[in-house]
Design a protein around this nucleic acid. Sequence first.
DNA 1: GAAACGTGGTT
DNA 2: TAACCAAGTTT
Length: 304
Amino acid sequence: MTAITATEAPSLPLPLPLLHSTVIDWYEASKRDLPWRTPDATPWAVMVSEFMLQQTPVKRVLPVWRAWLTRWPTPADLAAEAPGEAVRMWGRLGYPRRALRLHAAAVAITEEHGGGVPDDHATLLSLPGVGEYTAAAVASFAFRQRHVVLDTNVRRVFARAVTGVEYPAIATTAAERRTATALLPDDAATAATWAVGVMELGALVCTARGPECGDCPLFTACAWQRAGRPPYEGPARRGQTYEGTDRQVRGKLLAVLREAHGTVPQARLDAVWPDAVQRARALDGLVADGLVEPVEQGVYRLPQ
DNA sequence: GAAACGTGGTT
DNA sequence: TAACCAAGTTT
């Protein structure tokens, strides 16, 4: 039982229906033409886009998404391939475990769900690589259902427009979820457009750095704007150093495996990083994660 | 709840 | 230039 104290009722100086139409009208006029938003985009196409877009910019996703859907138009097409093929096709998108999980999700869909992407949130959530955000996004964008879709863009828009601070907390809070729930339109179709609209507003206008407040449909309503746009005061944002980390070494090792077809001898891997201890640790990690498969002593390949 | 997990573009 | 940021999930 959680005690709810001083529930911060989201208070924007305009009625909910007007808020909804303001954002939705802006979205219809300003949205990007992204291929996973077209009427003929399948739920699978939407799901693939959501996996790829996790922590990765749209511009880098586009070409990989096109190649992926051309090669694997349905979950069964991907499920029929070796997981290593998914890792290879993933290319340099980063976080290659996503490729492995997307393959595993395709297998689960094929073997346990009749080959079609599930349309309910709980079943989506049970798939590998699908968390709270992705389950809500697929249910909302692909199936036009009513869900709170809370990603980094939406969190930032609400932090500013509703709460009046420049950035949301590092981790999602119960208060944020309450705010998002309270603002969600009742009608499913409207809620789905609202969800993608708020997200697009955060991606194009209410950006992390250098927001274009002059172009914002919520300019006059925005709590942060009305407060004089006070700068962020919280703890330092999460710095992600990369140079010299195991992450970097894993990336270099996997790049060699991806670009080679077939097996790779130890010597080719040894060449990518001078520190043998760190190199071995990184390779062990890749094997433990299922991203690399040992074939025999000193020979490796992508998972078959 | 904190930490690990890639890669490349922008400020 | 170093730091920050990009449609998060898993352990």
